[in-house]
Write a protein that binds this DNA or RNA. Structure first.
Lengths: 202, 202
DNA sequence: ACCATATTATGGTGATTGCCATAGTGTACC
DNA sequence: GGTACACTATGGCAATCACCATAATATGGT
């Protein structure tokens, strides 16, 4: 119960929202604090690391939210249902884009594009978030692959496609391609294994 | 030879370079003009539309350069060599990233991420560039598909994966995944057609 | 009631942002 | 040699940038 103040959380949530729609550099601290309702006076009390610290926390929050959503879908995927799992990932992204009128970008993608070249700390955090999503996707398709490495490779392909499609769809203001592209990726999913139950003794 | 001044071209080239590594908002006009050697006094003479016009021209230049590279590879692709074409696209992106020490981002991706939500003009230009790349990729794999639509869908998948992988690789400072991901996409390439020569009368 | 700490207000720092008006210089053509 | 036009220098615009020092206030535990 310690102390009560939602200023910190408000600021981070606003950062997530704004970094998604306009990126890092275009988002000023003033706009951020105004929209969040958080007081300006306490910003450097809560975030002594300044704007960069805020970005790291926003990345963390956005990262684990998305990871949670993927993990939930992966856990609900029965052996054999992997195609539906892959399709659901694209479907969910498409719905989110439509619901947001194509403003829902990706924090990791935006921060990465602007800061990967010059800020190793942020680059590492971006990479960490992305890798956690890849792992979660790999969990959802693991049954189709013999090695973890192969599952990771496939999951990375799905992740890259999702990220790239999000960017393309935002510019195009259309989600028309999502379903068809999910089909392409389902095509390269290996057939379900014979389940080591018996008949394949060699 | 009308007039001679490379100020315009210098500015656009610097814009391409800087928008690739740090994006739009993080790139100030001062930095841009300093690095390009172009004089500050004539900026609004050459670009009355200001920074946005510069962005549109940078997008145009970057877009047609990349399209040219894809088209050249597509034209050099013999029927049956489509897997090599797809692999070459990933290979080229990987080499470019390594050569630039992972600073070589994508102008369209960066401008899209920062401005798609609020600037329809830029969003349309981004979409135009991306669609031209998709078309060019589709030309390179056309032999494997019965309809143009199917080729475009596959090409869009490749494009999205390339874009997403570029972002991921920049944050990770590694191109280790590129070859394996190209393999995944080659897997979902349909087999070469029987070449309407004879044996398939039905 | 008191103290320690958590949180915020206020007001300002210098630097930089994109943009522009005005004046001037260069070169080409007649 | 003079006119027209392409180009650039200069200087400054108001606005915003991230950041911070200082002081005031709120709120907890004791």
């Amino acid at each position: 119960m310690v102390r009560t103040s939602n200023a910190r959380q408000d600021a981070v949530e606003a950062a997530v929202r704004l970094f998604r729609t306009q990126g890092y550099s275009a988002t000023g601290l003033t706009q951020l604090l105004e929209e969040s309702g958080a007081p300006k006076g306490s910003f450097y009390f809560h975030f002594p690391g300044g704007k960069e610290q805020l970005a790291l926390e926003a990345l963390q929050v956005f990262g684990s939210e998305l990871r949670g959503r993927i993990q939930r879908r992966a856990a609900a995927t029965a052996p054999g249902d992997e195609p539906a799992f892959v399709r659901a990932l694209f479907e969910a992204t498409a719905r989110e884009l439509e619901a947001s009128d194509y403003t829902a970008g990706c924090v990791a993608s935006n921060l990465g594009g602007e800061l990967s070249s010059g800020n190793r700390t942020i680059a590492d955090a971006v990479n960490g978030a992305v890798q956690s999503w890849v792992e979660a996707i790999a969990d959802g398709v693991a049954n189709r692959f013999e090695t973890r490495e192969a599952a990771i490779t496939y999951a990375a392909t799905v992740m890259a496609s999702l990220s790239g499609m999000r960017t393309m769809a935002r510019a195009q203001r259309s989600t028309a391609m999502f379903a068809a592209i999910a089909d392409v990726l389902v095509t390269s999913l290996p057939p379900a294994p014979a389940k080591k139950s018996g008949s394949d003794t060699n």
